[in-house]
Simulated scan of single mutants.
Amino acid sequence: MSAPTPSPGPGEALVRVAAAGLCGSDREVYDGGRPAPYVRYPIVPGHEWAGTVAAVGDGVPDALTGRKVVGENFRTCLACDRCRAGETSLCAAAYDETGFTRPGAFADTLVVPARLLHPLPDDADLDAAALLEPAAVAAAAALAARAVPGERIAVLGAGTLGLLVVRFLAAVSPAELIAVDPRRARAEQALAMGATGTRSPGTGPGGFDVVVETAGAPDTAATAAELARRGGRVVLTGLPGSGARGLDPVRLVTDHLTVRGVFGAPSAAWTHAVRAFTTGLLDPAPLITHTFPLERWGEAVALVGSGDPGVGKVLVRPEA
């Protein structure tokens, strides 16, 4: 199916998409399982992307044309108390996000507010840059964890998000950084991202200062709290389906646990992720396992959530 190329309006930029990643949320949109408040059909999905600015609208500097970019997806109001406090992922306005309520990147081009763009160096690898959206979420989780050098840290889940969290947390020089995943090969991939060890769920001691949950499995949120020491910090990023095991409120109180949730990424986390990428601290390219032309995106989305341990990040390229 083809459509005319849109034109950027005032304050907007037209981006020619180079690569777009798929995740479980895209599979939800495809299957019709995403909660109603968080999708608006008909929709062109695609919220993990990188590309080049092809044109700009009125009020946008012409110098942006031709620049490689990534972009934030939350269409925030910038006027509410949360936006003014810098917590843009908690915007009080109605939920509005590229790829879910606005046309996304599974297309040749997309139009976004220019204020949401993050320019990249001219030599940036745009395939790798397409992973900067999950990297921004990982950065938000790492920042929420408030980890300091010498702490013991566990990351539950060694999917794309978990591996990116490991990379950010490795940068704070923990005494121990353990990746927990039943898939041995995926857990061992965390070693290349900076983990000091791996384990399967249900093995080994707890007592971690920081536990970051990224898997979204029915038991992983409860397991994360169980792995934390008294007074420890737990960050939850996975979105389990109905019937998930909840956290024990008695333990939360008696063990003085601090629990934070992360949904999406505020602008500060995006800046953190882009800076890590452009300075060479973060290289997401090894996480890419499959690339398809956009015309075969049905095959690409079928791999996401297939359970195949050999499937990491899947990309589609409009011009492949």
Rank of each mutant, 00 (worst) to 15 (best):
E12L: 09
A13Q: 00
A18S: 15
S25T: 15
D31G: 11
R34N: 03
R40Q: 15
R40V: 13
Y41M: 09
P42W: 12
P42M: 12
I43S: 03
A50S: 14
D58F: 04
G59K: 07
T65F: 06
G66V: 06
V70M: 11
G71E: 09
F74Y: 14
G99D: 13
T101R: 14
L110Q: 02
V112D: 05
L117G: 06
D122Y: 00
A128D: 02
A130Q: 07
A141C: 14
A144M: 03
A145T: 02
A154R: 00
V155N: 07
A158T: 06
G162M: 05
E176A: 13
L177I: 06
V180F: 10
R186D: 08
A195R: 04
T196H: 09
G207T: 02
D209R: 10
T220L: 01
T223C: 08
A228I: 02
G231P: 12
G231I: 11
R233C: 07
T237A: 15
D248W: 02
T254R: 11
D255G: 06
L257I: 02
V262D: 01
A265H: 01
W270V: 00
A273G: 00
V274E: 00
T278S: 12
T279E: 08
L281R: 12
A285K: 11
L287P: 00
L303D: 09
G307V: 13
G307I: 12
V316D: 00
A320R: 15
